[in-house]
Design a protein around this nucleic acid. Structure first.
Lengths: 139, 139
DNA sequence: GAATACTTGACTATTTTAGTCGGGTATATA
DNA sequence: TATATACCCGACTAAAATAGTCAAGTATTC
């Protein structure tokens, strides 16, 4: 079980942004420098965050990205979803009627993995961007 | 976040075994057929389970593998550890004094990922092999 | 009009995963 | 004691996913 960099960077970048006054555009270049994340990679990530209504963009000089909502209203689960990062514990479909491997109705440990998936999603569902207790020193 | 087949198969195979009387060797061939898992792959997995004292082997005709302990005393966390399947949420070391990226003491979301890691490990720590409620139909 | 900063699709190297292969060794039973 | 069964183990490999880079833009402000 491993978390990938894309979603990790996304949360890092948004946490970085949330330190600044809302409506104050933060450029990816600055985030890149502060958090040591490749600028080009950040661009990829922010396209998706924008498509999913988590940030909005401000073009031109002194432009950048702005959080579209208050950090209190941004759940981590949304960020993960934006990056297509689902928690996947099973190969088989969640509610497959046909059975997982074509043999038994459900594979022997199916319930367990479902339970785990719900458990993990629950973590992200209950965490808001504002919950990341940041001190100035962190940035 | 994805669970890999190795640990999934390990739990499936052990769950399968736990259906049979203890001390009755179960051959990998049988598990392979019942659970539709490649025999050669199972062999790889069981070498590790054996090294970690979860099963013991009985060689020769009518041999197979036997659970070394009661399913009530086998935690899922042990199975994952046996397969080197740690839950990894961060690239940086857990208690690195030097800092994660050589910049700040800890990367901005470090605490969060640590928390997630503990949260997930907790799930496995509290599940026993015997908790997988199996009915005859499952096998 | 020059500089800044977002936009987008395509490309690529590296790593990880999910196995397979080949050649063993040990043991039970006929 | 021959033979079949079943574990043992290191090395190999195809395919997929990951973690980026690259090139060629467009929009906005100063």
């Amino acid at each position: 079980m491993k978390l990938n960099t894309k979603s990790r960077y996304a949360v890092m970048a948004l946490a970085d942004m949330s330190k600044f006054p809302i409506n104050n555009p933060v450029s990816l270049r600055d985030i890149s420098l502060r958090q040591s994340i490749s600028l080009l990679y950040l661009e990829q990530i922010f396209i998706k965050l924008k498509k999913n209504d988590i940030v909005k963009s401000v073009r031109g000089t002194n432009g950048g990205y702005v959080l579209k909502r208050d950090p209190k209203n941004i759940k981590l689960s949304e960020i993960f979803q934006a990056l297509d990062q689902k928690v996947k514990t099973v190969g088989c479909k969640k509610d497959s009627k046909k059975g997982c491997n074509g043999k038994s109705a459900k594979c022997i440990t199916h319930e367990l993995w479902d339970e785990l998936e719900i458990y993990i999603n629950n973590f992200f569902e209950n965490k808001k961007l504002s919950d990341l207790s940041l001190t100035k020193g962190d940035i």
